[in-house]
Design a protein around this nucleic acid. Sequence first.
DNA 1: GCGTAACCTTACGTACGAGTAGGTATGCTG
DNA 2: CAGCATACCTACTCGTACGTAAGGTTACGC
Lengths: 216, 216
Amino acid sequence: MLARVSSAPTFKRLPRAIREQQMLDAAVRVFSRRGFHAASMDEIADDAGISKPMVYAYLGTKEELFVACLHREAARMMEAIAGAAAPDLPADQRLWRGLRAFFGFVGAYRDGWAVLYRQARGSQPFAGELAAMRARLVEVVAGMLDHALRAEGREVAETELEVVAYALVGASESLGDWLADHPDADPEKTATRMMNAAWLGAGQLLRGATWRPPAA
Amino acid sequence: MLARVSSAPTFKRLPRAIREQQMLDAAVRVFSRRGFHAASMDEIADDAGISKPMVYAYLGTKEELFVACLHREAARMMEAIAGAAAPDLPADQRLWRGLRAFFGFVGAYRDGWAVLYRQARGSQPFAGELAAMRARLVEVVAGMLDHALRAEGREVAETELEVVAYALVGASESLGDWLADHPDADPEKTATRMMNAAWLGAGQLLRGATWRPPAA
DNA sequence: GCGTAACCTTACGTACGAGTAGGTATGCTG
DNA sequence: CAGCATACCTACTCGTACGTAAGGTTACGC
């Protein structure tokens, strides 16, 4: 029986590499609009125009599939940022280009990035992956700041540097979330605003200005 | 039969109001260590030292229970912050006290706050609740900044103010996450660092200093 | 001292979704 | 054009956990 009755164009067979990408695309879409748990493998398969066992054959279990999504998106993002912020530029330019690339990425892959990212924070199995990725980012930013300060002849304790870098990355992530939630907002403008706050604030801070808590 | 054999103290019957609080306590614990979906109503009931139908009778379905948790924690947090940042203090004091209260709260209710908060971002049903709560916070912070600037005779467009406020709130949330992940970190110190970045950076920014993107 | 209401229980129905078994078609290599 | 590996399918098993039915027990008013 096996209804091959459909008048629809009997879908072509595709090589594994391509189908895998299609599946990942579908998985990102579904994970992002449903959340990890509410997403069903059936829906993902359906969305990819394929049947469920294929997904299992190529990408493995649901968790493995999610991790694969995470890795692909993370790699894309890191590539975009690293590619934009060439190390031979002056520091403010590097930070600016990096931020612009970051927000550009978030703007382009709105549902992709934002929700994957949001999802990954909650559930134990993926928190580690995310933490590693964030650590790499923090390191890069801290390197930028350090470079800039050395050029001015200043030096700052590593811990302090890292906290500031962490704050910058955190603020950017938050504005990334904000951007993903406001489809009509402009990534470029958002990047400019972030750059303002970052450069002015962190700049002052690392240059030695401090605010001290009152005695009370 | 109905094994009332346990040598444990036959648990006293308690009035509804108290049991509800115990259930909420348990729910927060379990949600925070398992995540919304992986948490089972059975485990929550067990953790509360009560049986499942009681939970349904008092707090309703799983989603309703989670929302109840969210509301209680949010209310506690807003109260802590608002109570600390009395409106008759000078602006920097208000911001400082607010931040200190915020990080103090996060530090005290580590698993409570952080994971509830992280959970709520992912799943559709709760995103709205969280957005509303954050909006209130942003409004408060924007009010503080506005107040401070008016005192100096300056005035800033409302949109701009809101974005800065959003960035501050976002950065604080991120550092809150960080704090929740580092059990040996000091809330007070974290608050000081945040205050430094916020006051110096935002202060400059709102006072008219700007960084402009290069032509290229 | 007794009923009524609120508290609390064990034990189930049921649905949904992860993962699999086993079989069919199609392109490539000789 | 044989045959083999790879792409692909339908249809199932089975565990898990939400939500509920129906009944037992303690406190409190009269």
